[in-house]
């Protein structure tokens, strides 16, 4: 009985403490932005996270406040997007956005689509690359010929069904007019699996293959963007090789919840632009292997909308599309 009495007393004490605490914390004003820490939600690990952390640092420098990258992984980005939607649209919660805003919606993981976010600025694009083991296929044409002659025999490594590398592979091999088998495997194993000959081709990010390509163990056949990428300028594009339909890139940029005040978006946009043009970001792009592609809020919005259409159709064709409950 004694214990119960004590607990009641404690509850009373808590109520008093709250009364004291709450009067204090309403005192802050919102005239200057940022007046407190900005949380930047990062949705994935790997390169996405590394670049996100860099951008957070860059924003911090150009914005004059604290920007903390916080990872909220899971569900192909859905967990992080949902978190942003649960927060007030104050500009203090931003997200390191990517194509996953479209893929997670069309896979039925989020009930809202890209329109629920206000674009701030696009920062970079990453371009997938098609690679094979050296000595197996020398060009995309050889690969296409083989795949057409042996439908379903060519094993193409992807990161997982519905992953961006899967969508890219689907576009590539559709354009080539070949039927292939997709092998989903865990993170980052593409080079090893290719070297061992367990898969015949793989679509991944160039950073994973570069060292092997230079050593002559693997061969990067083509990149999927419209223009060659700066970090691996010797690799032709699919467009150059005559497959004009192939144009896939993964964009990354900043976004906030819809309804965030214009002034906040402007401030963030300005800081992002300054960082995108800095020497530091350029150096990082070379080392990590992404392409800087700054777009302002308006242009970025257009790009997202255009991409969303493409992804929607693609996912429908692949039978991956689903409606959110």
């Amino acid at each position: 009985m004694k214990l119960t009495k004590k607990i009641v007393g404690a509850l009373a004490a808590i109520t008093l403490l709250f009364a004291g605490a709450s009067t204090n914390s309403f005192a802050g004003s919102h005239s200057k932005f940022p007046s407190k820490t900005i949380e930047m939600t990062v949705l994935f690990g790997g390169t996405a996270k590394s670049v996100g952390q860099l951008v957070a640092k860059g924003l911090e420098k150009n914005l004059g406040g604290t920007v903390v990258p916080v990872s909220r992984p899971g569900g192909g980005g859905a967990v992080g997007y949902k978190y942003i939607q649960s927060r007030p649209a104050s500009g203090y919660d931003i997200v390191w956005n990517s194509n996953s805003v479209s893929t997670s919606h069309h896979r039925g993981r989020t009930s809202f689509n890209y329109k629920a976010f206000t674009p701030i600025a696009a920062m970079s694009i990453e371009v997938p690359v098609l690679a094979v083991k050296s000595g197996t296929f020398n060009s995309v044409k050889e690969l296409a010929d083989y795949a057409k002659k042996n439908p379903g025999k060519l094993k193409v490594g992807i990161s997982g069904k519905g992953a961006f590398t899967h969508l890219t592979s689907a576009i590539i091999f559709d354009t080539l007019g070949a039927k292939v088998t997709y092998i989903p495997y865990g993170k980052g194993k593409a080079p090893a699996e290719l070297l061992a000959g367990r898969i015949d081709a793989a679509v991944q990010w160039p950073g994973q293959f570069r060292s092997f390509h230079k050593a002559g163990q693997l061969k990067m056949l083509a990149v999927t963007s419209q223009e060659r990428i700066a970090s691996d300028s010797s690799i032709p594009t699919m467009k150059e090789l005559g497959y004009k339909k192939v144009d896939v890139t993964m964009w990354r940029g900043l976004a906030a919840k819809k309804g965030t005040p214009k002034a906040q978006i402007k401030a963030l946009e300005k800081a992002a632009e300054a960082y995108a043009n800095s020497a530091e970001f350029k150096a990082a792009s070379k080392k990590i292997g992404f392409t800087i592609n700054y777009l302002n809020s308006k242009q970025f919005g257009k790009q997202i909308a255009k991409d969303d259409k493409k992804i929607k159709k693609l996912m429908k064709d692949l039978g991956l599309a689903k409606k959110a409950k």
């Binding site: 690990g45 790997g46 390169t47 996270k49 590394s50 860099l54 993170k187 980052g188 194993k189 080079p191 090893a192 950073g207 994973q208 570069r210 060292s211 092997f212 230079k214 050593a215 163990q217 990082a284 070379k286 080392k287 990590i288 292997g289």
Partner: peptide
């Protein structure tokens, strides 16, 4: 370039950022 666990995955991130991409080269 294959990390064995979450910890080595973060170290891999560190390597990449400093331009040391894993592989034979």
């Amino acid at each position: 370039g294959i990390p064995g666990d979450p910890a080595t995955a973060i170290i891999l991130g560190g390597l990449l950022i400093h331009g040391l991409s894993p592989g034979p080269m």
